[in-house]
Design a protein around this nucleic acid. Structure first.
Lengths: 352, 352
DNA sequence: GATACAATTGCACACGTGTGCATTGGTGAT
DNA sequence: ATCACCAATGCACACGTGTGCAATTGTATC
C-alpha cells in the first residue's frame, strides 16, 4: 500500500498540511513536530508523489531529450553530458528516439508536452525552426543541438559546433600533409542537412586557399553510418584516379570506408589518408587510429542542459523569450596515424 | 495559456465530465457531441495532462531504465530494444545512469519510485537481489538484464544470456583453431561480477574437454573498457611465453588489447588470435574484424520490456508475484578475421 | 396517456500535494 | 487584567482528470 501524507497525518494526529510543511522544511513549523514527522515519514516508507506535486507547482523537474538513435556513439556521449548536469540540478531525463523521421520527432515532442516536461533538448533535429511556430503550444523551452534544418530561418536556442571550421581544419591538415586530391564523403543528404553542408564548405575553403580547385567528382554521398562509408569508397574506387585522402562526414563513415579500403588491399594511410569527425571513443582504437575532428560532445550536452535551465527560469519572467542564446562550440583536430607518416602521396590505381 | 478539459467544457457549454468522456471515446456519449468536442479540442490545442490522469488512474505508462553508462555500445543497443517495444505499447522511457555505483543505482530507483513509474528495467545491476527486499516498497515490478550480483540469491525476474555457454563457444572455437595457450581477460572484478565469472567457467570447460589444463597465469584482469584491455595485454606480454590466443570479456576490452598488441608489433590473428564478446556494431569494422560472441542485444531489451509489461498487468491480480520468469537467451559465435586464417600457432616471444 | 426503459448528461467526489487565510494558544508589554 | 502580537496549526481550496451515481430527456410499449 502506498503511503501518502494523509496517512502520515493520521498516524501523527495532525493535518496533512502540517505534514506537507514539515517535509518541505517550512519555517512555519516547530522543529519538534518537524523532526517527529520526518522520522515517521521514513519509518512508514514514504515516497513523495511527484505527479501530485507537479500538478500544483506547475513544474516537473523533468526534461525531454529527443535523439535520432541512441545507438549512435555521438548521441550517447551527448546524452551522457546532458544527464550529468541534469543530475546535478535534480532534473530527470525522458528519452525518446525519432528514428530520423520528422513525424516521429513531432510525435515525441507531443508526448513530452503531455508529460509536462519543463524543457526539451533535441539532438540533430530534422524539424528545427518548426519549433518556433509551436513554441507557445509546447509551452516549454526547446534547445537544439546541431540543428539540421535552417531552411525556415534560424532557431534561437541552439548549440552548434562550428562545422565550417571543422571541415576547414580537416582539409587543411590533409593539404599540409601534401595531399592534393582530397575527397569528401557527406552525411545523410535528406532534406537539408546543414552540418554536412557546412563541413563541405570548410573543406572547399581549405582547398581554395591552397590553390586547389575542388573537384565535384570527389564529393560523394554517405549516410553517417559505416555502410554508407563502404559504398562511398566503392564510388571513389571507380574513378579513373583514386584520391590520396578522404575527409569523412563522421567517424562511423570513416570506419566503413577504411574497412572497404582494406578489403581492396589499400592500406591506410600509405595509400589513402582518412580523416573522420566526432572523435567517438573508439576512434583511437581503430587500426590505424583515426585522425578526426573532435567535438566536445559531453560539454555540448552539459551546455545544452544549462541553456535549458536558464531558459526555464526566465520563462515566467519575460513573456516573450527575448534573448537568443546561440552557443557555438569549438572543435579541434586530433591527429592520429590514419593521416601521418606517409612518404609517397602520388595518386595510385586501385587493386594494387 | 494551457488549456484543460474545463476550458473546453466552458466553451462547449457542457460539463468537464462530458469532455473527458468524449476524449476517451466513452460509449456513454452521443457521437454528435463526441465529434464536436474532439474538433474543439484540437482547435484549442489541447494536450491531455498526463500527470493529472495518472494521479487518478494509478498508472503512468512509464518505465524507468537504469544503466551503468549509456556510453557503452552494449547498453545503448539494449536500451534501443527497450525503446522499440515501449513505443509499441505507448510506454515512455525514463533513463538514469548509475555510473556503476550501487549508491547511485539505489538513488535512481528511489527517484523512479517517486515518479511512480509502472516498472523498472535495470541493466547490469550491481545490487540485484536487493530489489527483492524492497519489492513492496518500490511497488512496481523490477526486471534485471544481466544481473551481476547473485550473492543474495537469485532474483526472479531476469533476462540473462547463457554466459557459460558463450565462454565455452569462444574457447572451443580457439581450441578448434589449434590454439592451446589461451588467455582470458576478465571484466570488472568489483564485488561479484557473475557474468565474467560464468564466461570464465565456460572457457575452462572448453579447455578441459580438449585436455588442456587451465593455467591461472593466463587469466588476467580487465575492466570492460579498452584501457583495461591494454593493461591486460601488457600483463600477458610480461609472461615468459605469450599465449597464442586471447578471449576477452567484451569487445571493448578486445579493442584495447588488439590496439596494444599492434603497438608491440604483433599482428592479429597471425601472432595472436582475439575473441571478444557482445558483437557491438563496430566489431565487424575493426581491422581485423573481430570474432566475437554475439548477444542479441535489441532482443534482450525487447524481451525485458515484454516481461515488464506482463508483470505490470499481473500485479493487480495476484498479490504475491508468483511465477518467477527467468529468460535465458542464447548467444552465438560470430567468426571473423581476428581468429582465422593462420598457419603457425606455436608460441612466440614478444617484440618480434 | 401513463409507464418503463434506454440514452445522454451533470454532480460530486477522488487522486496526493501545496498554500492563503483563519484560528488557536501562548507570551510579553502595558 | 487587557491587549497586541507571534508562533503553530488546521481549514478549505486548487491543480486536471476520471468515474459512480443521480438526474434529465427522449422513445417505445402497452
Amino acid at each position: 500500500m502506498r503511503v501518502s501524507i494523509k496517512d502520515i497525518a493520521r498516524t501523527a494526529g495532525v493535518s496533512h498540511s502540517t505534514v506537507s510543511r514539515a517535509l518541505n522544511d517550512s519555517s512555519l513549523i516547530s522543529d519538534a513536530t518537524k523532526d517527529r514527522i520526518k522520522c515517521l515519514a521514513d519509518e512508514m516508507g514514504y515516497s513523495p508523489n511527484t505527479l501530485a506535486r507537479s500538478l500544483v507547482t506547475r513544474y516537473t523537474n523533468t526534461v525531454g531529450v529527443v535523439v535520432t538513435t541512441i545507438t549512435d556513439p555521438f548521441m550517447s556521449e551527448v546524452v551522457q553530458g546532458i544527464q550529468t548536469t541534469a543530475d546535478e540540478y535534480d532534473y530527470t531525463v525522458i528519452l525518446c528516439s525519432s528514428e530520423e523521421t520528422p513525424e516521429r520527432e513531432m510525435a515525441a515532442v507531443e508526448m513530452l508536452r503531455s508529460k509536462r516536461v519543463d524543457g526539451v533538448i533535441c539532438i540533430a533535429s530534422r524539424i528545427g525552426a518548426v519549433y518556433l511556430e509551436h513554441q507557445e503550444r509546447i509551452d516549454a523551452p526547446v534547445v537544439i543541438i546541431n540543428n539540421h534544418n535552417e531552411r525556415m530561418g534560424r532557431y534561437p536556442h541552439t548549440i552548434s559546433v562550428d562545422n565550417h571550421h571543422g571541415g576547414y581544419l580537416a582539409a587543411r591538415h590533409l593539404v599540409q600533409q601534401g595531399d592534393r586530391r582530397i575527397a569528401y564523403v557527406s552525411g545523410p543528404v535528406a532534406v537539408n542537412h546543414s552540418s554536412s553542408r557546412d563541413r563541405l564548405g570548410g573543406y572547399r575553403q581549405a582547398l581554395m586557399e591552397a590553390g586547389i580547385e575542388p573537384e565535384p567528382a570527389l564529393v560523394v554521398e554517405g549516410n553517417g553510418c559505416p555502410d554508407g562509408g563502404e559504398r562511398a569508397f566503392r564510388h571513389l574506387a571507380a574513378l579513373d584516379e583514386l584520391p590520396t585522402a578522404v575527409f569523412c562526414y563522421n567517424d562511423m563513415t570513416a570506419m566503413g570506408l577504411m574497412h572497404a579500403a582494406g578489403r581492396t588491399g589499400l592500406s591506410v594511410p600509405e595509400d589513402l589518408a582518412v580523416v573522420g569527425y566526432d572523435d567517438i571513443p573508439l576512434a583511437s582504437y581503430l587500426s590505424p587510429p583515426l585522425t578526426t575532428v573532435s567535438q566536445p560532445k559531453a560539454e555540448m550536452g552539459q551546455e545544452a542542459m544549462r541553456m535549458t535551465l536558464s531558459l526555464m527560469s526566465e520563462e515566467g519572467v519575460s513573456e516573450e523569450m527575448s534573448g537568443t542564446s546561440e552557443a557555438l562550440v569549438q572543435c579541434r583536430l586530433v591527429t592520429r596515424a590514419s593521416t601521418v607518416g606517409r612518404q609517397d602521396k602520388s595518386p595510385r590505381a586501385v587493386g594494387g
